[in-house]
Design a protein around this nucleic acid. Sequence first.
DNA 1: TTAGGGTTAG
Length: 542
Amino acid sequence: MPIRDTVSWNIMISGFLRNGDFDTGFGYFKRLLELGFDWLDQANFTTMLSACDIQEYSFVTKIIHCLVVLSGYEQEVTVGNALITSYFKCGSCGLGRQVFGEMRERNVITWTAVISGLVQNQLYDDSLKLFAEMRCGSVNPNFLTYLSSLMACSGLQALREGRQIHGILWKLGSQLDLRIESALMDMYSKCGSVEDAWRVFESAEELDEVSMTVILVGFAQNKFEDEAIQFFVKMVKAGIEIDPNMVSAVLGVFGVDTSLGLGKQIHSVIVKRGFTSNPFVSNGLINMYSKCGDLKESIKVFSRMSDKNSISWNTMIAAFARHGNGSRALELYKEMRLEGIKPTDVTFLSLLNACSHVGLVEKGMEFFKSMTEVHKISPRTEHYACVVDMLGRAGLLNEAKSFIEGLPVKPDLLVWQALLGACSIHGDSEMGKYAADQLILAVPNSPAPYILLANIYSSKGRWRERARTIRRMKEMGVDKETGISWIEIENAVHSFVVDDRSHPNAEIIYEVLAELFRHMIDEGYQPDKRFILHYLDQNDKE
DNA sequence: TTAGGGTTAG
């Protein structure tokens, strides 16, 4: 069949592109070009650009942009919009904005493409600024614009701006789209307000797998672990269609306080539904078992995975480190490199952490060096804090201090916390005071530095300095909240504070405690008496 | 041509 018109060409090209056969699609585009520019129309360009949705196609996008200019279509609004979208999808944000800046005609899609493109590239602040600019102009936002702006608020944890958008939507008065409701819930929970998220959830007329995942993650990431698990269990019992996203979200809440048994039950749900091959689910399982103390099971899940990604490796490295097997963690890193998996910034956090806990300072410093020099990953303050922690734990407090002094950025509280922590392990009150002072400057309202410093003084028997530190804390109006512990017995929660005798069975409880303590001593337990805060003789300290 | 959710450290 002789191919005579542009539309036929375009249908053919888009057919191949849609089926993922980029080579053939591009091949036909090339043949079309050979026929001359007269054969091209704007649809050919938008079709080609729609295939440029991955980072590797950035260069292709630029070439198509050149062809657009050559054929005189650069002021067509649909072509401009497609260019903007492709540039942002390829990560070329600057070029995307440049196209936007040069467009004479801009419709709602133009604005929304930039606003959402900025969000996709984590430039949330710029995205909200543009949204504000758009609201001053003549083009009205549509629901996708609001959706993207809400996502920007989530990224920035900007509760005030998020509420404003919620207000605008409320004033518009129309029934909210479920996608908008999900974005609202996500915004509220990322901003730490699960209550607001829950209110939106309850007012939603219908729910789907995404909105349920959002509220589940909202619970999970705001320390409502029990609620998250209960919500998940309720969904399973109610026969609601569970998807892998929900499963990986709920796995994320498992930790030391959650029961391994419940985790195993969720594992069986995963097997029943056939989600075992989903990498998010498997990574979540590795992490769940590791955090709940079952390293063997973590290893099993890890070794069964056919396509391990960098997160799988990072999680497994961290698992070995958590279980005190630093050398195995480092071996695993070697295997990861042999498999050709690129390490990420988190890989190095896990490695530094592993080195820190097994005292491999030199090895750790090597990792830190190779991270920046070989892998070109720029360190975050978390990495600096890990290095300080590593040096500090090894007793190299002076090295830790000079490391901090040599940092290219202002050290943040994580760094000072690491130094102070190390000082308290090694009982260095001089440097401890220095670190605590820095920490107090950084976070004036936190009782932690005062308490840690006071504890260092106590361990040295320097009672006067200890008292001065506590006085200073009180003068600054900082209060230490009394630490409460609690235990759940047969669905009743019993909470208690230090030296608490208010419980009706206090007598019996303390008798049992004394009995347990005698057992511990018999088993060879050596109490750590350094941090007893008051002046007592050795026997009383026990 | 703009499109809501999930896993990794401490």
